[in-house]
Design a protein around this nucleic acid. Structure first.
Lengths: 194, 194
DNA sequence: GGGATTCTTGACCGGTTGGTCAAGCGCCCG
DNA sequence: CGGGCGCTTGACCAACCGGTCAAGAATCCC
């Protein structure tokens, strides 16, 4: 494995990252072998191990990169809004839109949570997401928009609703993102209100 | 594999089922080999394939049996209650208590959702759970306890909250079941109320 | 051109996997 | 006592796994 990469090398690396994420999401991490990955790219096995130290490290990186991109999108979406409750709503909607465009990450996150080797990465991702939400909830409490309850519990509850609603209505039933967003937001804002 | 089993056979079968669930939950499905399972029981490999057609079928059966048991507990818990909203609350609390006692099933359900071979079984489990909840929500709407919203969306939202809160507060932080139940119920009942 | 560097190849390795099966054990019934 | 059946054994198998590496191609810089 190499550290410093030329522009061409970076592209290859991104290529592997992308294709692996697709294959992992489609068939699962374990059932997808390194041989499958390189075969689907039409390259030799050595290419994989030139850019990644191991299959395990690859998935960790996919998880980190995915979450980072999701978070970037959330920030973009609510940058212009100042009202805390509206910021929460925009964050929820942005997440659902992102998941629609990156469906494979959803399954991957789910799987990673079940294996010890990956749960640390995932836990860190989750804690960042929760901290973001908690900040908005605290702001909303200060402004008197919602009752003074433990913000962290509320943040986790919101996460749960968004994940479940996304899974069912966006992925299984392929409903339009906006309607899925409406459903999640409605339940969550009611749950927050006192 | 045998169909009709003697009492002694049934016991063996249950033994394998139990031990496998433990091992799967601890190390993951794929990393746990059939050899590991039989070794931990101190028996030969043939025993496994006498009672189960394959490793895959074994997990399917674990998933079905687990959900069946959870559902039985839910029914027991709310049998005496007639008020729809209270029935929902008791169902939520019973689920959390069950998951505390059967923590390994939680991880197993999570993993199974990520692999195509098992998602059908899991989807069926989920649909049964949703149907149960929907029934109570409809009753509550009829009695005017909650606003007339799509009951299915509400049911999925509740499922999401319960799963996420259970995962975080019951498993990761080991808080007392009652407090975990309180948190989940409070958010859900607010989310339902209009 | 030519040498160094970056990247690619694919045969190969030790180890593991899910699954098979001929053989044998021991309990039960006639 | 003996034969049959439910159950158990564990060596064995082909397939596959993640990972290595010596050899070579492509690219770049002098």
């Amino acid at each position: 494995m190499r550290r410093e990469l030329t522009p061409r090398g970076k592209e290859r690396r991104a290529q592997i990252l992308q294709r692996s994420a697709d294959l992992f999401a489609e068939r699962g991490y374990h059932p997808t072998s390194v041989a499958d990955i390189v075969a689907s790219l039409g390259v030799g096995k050595g290419v994989f191990y030139w850019y990644f130290a191991s299959k395990e490290e690859l998935l960790c990186e996919i998880l980190r990169a995915g979450h980072q991109d999701l978070r970037r999108r959330q920030h973009e979406a609510l940058a212009a809004e100042t009202d805390p409750l509206r910021r929460i709503e925009l964050g929820i909607r942005a997440s659902i839109v992102w998941f629609k465009e990156h469906q494979h990450y959803f399954r991957l996150f789910q799987f990673a949570a079940t294996e010890e080797a990956f749960s640390p990465v995932l836990l860190r991702n989750e804690q960042i997401a929760i901290a973001d939400t908690v900040r908005h909830i605290k702001d909303a409490i200060v402004e008197g928009e919602i009752a003074d309850t433990d913000p962290e519990v509320l943040a986790y509850a919101i996460l749960g609703v968004v994940e479940q609603i996304t899974e069912t209505y966006l992925f299984e039933r392929d409903e339009p993102v906006e309607r899925v967003g409406d459903a999640a937001v409605r339940f969550c804002l009611r749950g927050l209100a006192g």
